[in-house]
Amino acid sequence: MAILVVAAHDGKTVRANVANAVAAASQMGSDVHVLVAGSNAGDAAKSAAAIQGVAKVLQAEDAAYGNWLAEDIAPLVVKLAPNYSHIVMAADSVGKNIAPRVAALLDVAQVSEAIQVVSPDTFVRPIYAGNAMATVQSSDKIKVVTIRPTNFKAVVGSGSAAIEQIGGTGGSGLSSFVGAELSKSERPELTSAKIVISGGRGLASGENFKMLEKLADVMGAGLGASRAAVDAGYVPNDYQVGQTGKVVAPDLYIAIGISGAIQHLAGMKDSKTIVAINKDEEAPIFQVADYGIVGDLFQIVPELTAAVEKK
């Protein structure tokens, strides 16, 4: 049976992590379909059709699908589900919101944030903030799985899948979208950036994050933060890296003024190279850092910025 990947998109293109979800889905079975639901989702459907390994794109047009409300999208996925062995979504804020609603409506369990597909019914997923890895087997007929994008290399190359128009299921009337307050940034998106620079409570103010912005700009990096920095209002919530924030796995992660609590490590310890800048040589972050530098960040960061800028 085929696998259905439910794709989030911005109206123009599907999210980059859909290519990771397709890669994961391809390990569960061979016939991967992608559902693109939206109002005016034609361009997004085309972008899904161009992903290597996608056999078919289902485009569902409905005014109700414009803003990804779980109450409206879940019934559509449930209607399609009997034709599929697996429903797959990326474990981002869209997938986490919708997939469990779909699973419960189908009366099946969900496997959350799979990091490995062992076989079509068996998956590895982190528990306890990644301090343990559970291998789990689902006995349900339809398996609802969210996948952690950083653990599945995005498929490369292009495809040309057929796009099939399917009908919508209408609105539920249970919820409506009012508006978004999105953080504006020219910098690379955190979860796909090659370099991520994160600041913690050690930065001591939002103003001081400007220093990290400068370093991020010279390095072409995305900006992240610890929970403490977000809670203190230094930076917006979507900067949070960790167990209950975003999971990143860049080539280079630089933790600045971050102590390295397990909840933070859960979101970055799969990074290829980790650098820690901290004045406390006992800080736990040094236990996972490839390169540590003990000292005052207010001195080190400007020096580092200048050194990288100079080449």
Binding site: M133, A134, Q137, I274, E281, Q287
Partner: peptide
């Protein structure tokens, strides 16, 4: 509905080294 087949330790990351200066850090990177 889901059976846990096994629970294991995650792969451990080795602690690396401490560098003394920014120049050394940039050189390593």
């Amino acid at each position: 509905r889901i059976k846990t087949l096994k629970v294991e330790e995650p792969p451990k990351r080795k602690a690396g080294i401490k560098v003394k200066t920014v120049a050394e850090l940039v050189d390593k990177l």
